[in-house]
């Protein structure tokens, strides 16, 4: 009778259901010291085997920097591939490890206000780990992000705890709460940014969910650059068949 949805701001190693043949789209509003950005992100994954998935992330960016002209357009495109390295299943629970590699392709509309739209080519190699039962879900992703253009590489680390809020029934009406931490550690110069991201997810039926996350910086020592005030994400995921 129980069952959870995927984490909101953290990757999932489970490439089923929405991960396999669905579409994820969300709007993220980022408020920074010198302006704000609104990004509409569309993610389309495709499973070409039980263990393998490829996909594309397409952000549409609307920038509003302070004291300068607004801009908008297609942001950095990101191609990704996932491969399941390890899986152990039991009744109502699973533990999985998946490798992930992404390649971002910058576009003219990239945004310094949004973390995924930095106008530089980036290659990310990471691991996604998830332990999911019918009562709790713990997810983590950890990876190294290589940048070109002489900018610093960074280590990205995210963790998510998910709890069903209600005693829900499959397939109807599930409400899940998430507490997530998003981290980004810059190698040179050494700087660290952490967000605490509580979120809520509503699953009204088999093929559709709504989610909201509020990301508040709890630690950022890059304040001399352009510190983030907060980020807010609202989105939907749905299966196309």
């Amino acid at each position: 009778m129980y069952g959870q949805g995927p984490p909101i701001t953290v990757e999932t190693p489970i490439m089923l259901g929405l991960g396999g043949s669905g579409i994820r789209t969300f709007n993220r509003f980022t408020s920074v010291e010198n302006g704000h950005a609104f990004v509409h992100v569309l993610t389309i994954p495709y499973n070409f085997s039980t263990k393998s998935q490829i996909g594309i992330v397409m952000p549409f960016v609307f920038n509003k920097p302070e004291n300068t002209i607004s801009s908008s357009g297609l942001g950095d495109l990101t191609l990704f591939a996932k491969y399941q390295l390890y899986k152990i299943d039991d009744i109502g629970k699973t533990f999985r490890i998946t490798a992930k590699i992404t390649q971002s392709i910058p576009t003219k509309s990239s945004s310094l206000q949004d973390p995924n739209n930095t106008k530089i080519s980036q290659t990310y190699i990471g691991i996604i780990v998830g332990k999911l039962s019918t009562k709790t879900g713990i997810y983590g992703d950890f990876g190294y992000n290589l940048t070109n253009s002489g900018l610093t590489d960074n280590i990205i680390y995210n963790i998510s705890f998910g709890f069903p809020l209600l005693e829900h029934q499959y397939p109807q009406k599930q409400v899940n709460l998430y507490l997530e931490v998003n981290g980004n550690y810059l190698i040179d110069p050494k700087r660290n940014v952490n967000f605490l991201s509580p979120g809520i997810q509503w699953i009204p039926g088999r093929r559709f969910l709504l989610e909201y996350s509020f990301q508040l910086p709890i630690f950022q020592d890059n304040s001399q650059i352009n510190s983030t005030n907060f980020r807010s994400l609202i989105g939907i995921r749905f299966l196309i068949n």
């Binding site: 959870q4 089923l16 259901g17 039991d90 999911l132 879900g137 969910l209």
Partner: peptide, 12 residues
């Protein structure tokens, strides 16, 4: 075994 989420069940 391993069917622990709503969308996992739908996929199955």
């Amino acid at each position: 075994k391993g069917m622990a989420c709503a969308f996992c069940a739908y996929g199955m």
